[in-house]
């Protein structure tokens, strides 16, 4: 029997190696399902999944929705770009409405850290975090882990560099926890103004020089640089960011031979990554998208029907 320790997926911090491995192995089975002519299995028939998106998202929402549909779940989307407070309805009221609709699982994205946790406290549904503030985005990190694992057959001992806005990136945080749990060595690199306070306490190597960070690494996961950050003065100009941190062909020479280029999307081509690198033969960026669906199917499958202990 395959059993995750928790009935929710709120983040990768504290998730065990066994649980991550179970998710990756299960993902393998779903990867096969989405290669079939009929890309659909009846597993979640009768299960209703709500995609509760308080932040605009296209990719993650579509990926989850496809995953749910391919598992034969009934899906409902609730999207709003404004927070519940601005909308005039409290989060608690929204949640109670959801509960009254007899939803089985909720996939939630919100700009505030801790909202997925909040949901677990006031409803019975299985909660999957699709991104909370700058805190965690566990399914994105899991698909990154799966993509690396499939390519190298292992995660243990690999050197992975995460480049970008470490301060505001939930993808980086989830990747740090997941990669470290699986035994990879993690390097973080970004402008000093975008490295959060006491970042070394994550237990990663921290660099502000991209060449030092890339030296001898196997995988480079390039994060999208939010252009608004520049307007807020976190770095002087786009041009300077590209010069100091952009991943280009020249810099790839520093990497190990069988290197991999990743990006969670959407890309700012020519800013954090050149097209040449993004479309190069070491890039697995589109593979990540496909794997994302399989990972989300695996997570939905493994959490579905999991009730409160003792029930």
């Amino acid at each position: 029997m395959g059993n995750l320790q928790s009935r929710h997926l709120l983040g990768l911090e504290g998730v065990s190696q066994e649980d991550i491995m179970l998710i990756l192995k299960t993902t393998d089975s779903f990867r096969e399902v989405i290669e079939r002519t009929i890309k659909k299995v009846p597993t979640l028939r009768g299960i209703t999944v709500l995609n509760l998106f308080y932040e605009p998202s296209t990719r993650t929402r579509i990926s989850f929705e496809l995953a749910e549909k391919r598992l034969s779940a009934d899906t409902i989307n609730f999207s709003t770009s404004t927070s519940s407070v601005k909308k005039g309805e409290s989060l608690r009221d929204t949640v109670q409405n959801i509960e009254a609709m007899k939803i089985d699982m909720v996939v939630v994205r919100h700009s505030s850290t801790g909202v997925p946790y909040y949901l677990t406290q006031c409803m019975d549904a299985n909660i999957i975090n699709a991104g909370d503030g700058a805190h965690e985005h566990p399914t994105q990190a899991l698909l990154d882990l799966y993509t690396i694992w499939k390519k190298y057959g292992k995660l243990d001992g690999l050197r992975v560099v995460l480049v970008g806005d470490v301060k505001h990136s939930r993808v980086i945080r989830s990747n740090i926890w997941g990669l470290k749990t699986m035994g990879a060595s993690v390097a973080l690199c970004g402008p000093a103004t975008l490295l959060p306070y006491e970042v070394e306490e994550f237990g990663c190597d921290v660099y502000t020089n991209i060449d030092e960070a890339l030296d001898g690494a196997d995988v480079v996961n390039v994060m999208r640089i939010q252009l608004e950050r520049q307007q807020l003065g976190m770095f002087p100009s786009r041009r300077e960011y590209t010069n100091l941190f952009g991943i280009n062909k020249e810099r790839l020479k520093l990497l190990n031979k069988n290197y991999t280029i990743m990006h969670p999307g959407p890309m700012n081509r020519g800013v954090e990554i050149t097209s040449e690198v993004a479309d190069g033969k070491h890039s697995v960026i589109l593979e990540q998208v496909t794997n994302g669906q399989a990972v989300r199917m695996a997570v939905l499958y493994l959490l579905s029907g999991r009730k409160e202990e003792g029930e």
Partner: peptide, 8 residues
């Protein structure tokens, strides 16, 4: 309570 392990 337990989900069966899915094989390929």
């Amino acid at each position: 309570l337990d989900q069966p392990v899915v094989e390929r």
